[in-house]
């Protein structure tokens, strides 16, 4: 029993194809991967909106001027 279908390497390499684990689950893996990617965007959108909302009320005029001078 092996997760990649090979329990030993007594094989002719000319006959060997994929060697990654859980072959046959590629579509499921893609669904999980896409969910991770979309989820990342969702989290990032929400976080950035909250951050910018908070940031717009925290600017001190003198400090902002100093930032402008700093270039």
């Amino acid at each position: 029993m092996s997760t990649n279908g090979y329990s030993n390497w007594a094989v002719d390499m000319a006959d060997v194809g994929a060697i990654y684990p859980f072959q046959g689950s590629e579509v499921l893996m893609v669904i999980v991967g896409v969910a991770f990617w979309i989820g990342w965007h969702r989290i990032q959108f929400v976080r950035e909106r909250e951050h910018l909302e908070k940031a717009r009320h925290t600017g001190d005029e003198e400090k902002v001027k100093a930032q402008l001078e700093r270039y």
């Binding site: 030993n8 390497w9 007594a10 094989v11 002719d12 390499m13 000319a14 006959d15 060997v16 060697i19």
Partner: peptide, 19 residues
């Protein structure tokens, strides 16, 4: 000089197992 049969050459990891 292990269990791999045939004549096809391969790249391996440090343990000489195929990758």
């Amino acid at each position: 000089d292990g269990q791999i049969t045939g004549v096809t050459w391969t790249a391996t990891n440090i343990y000489l197992a195929p990758t």
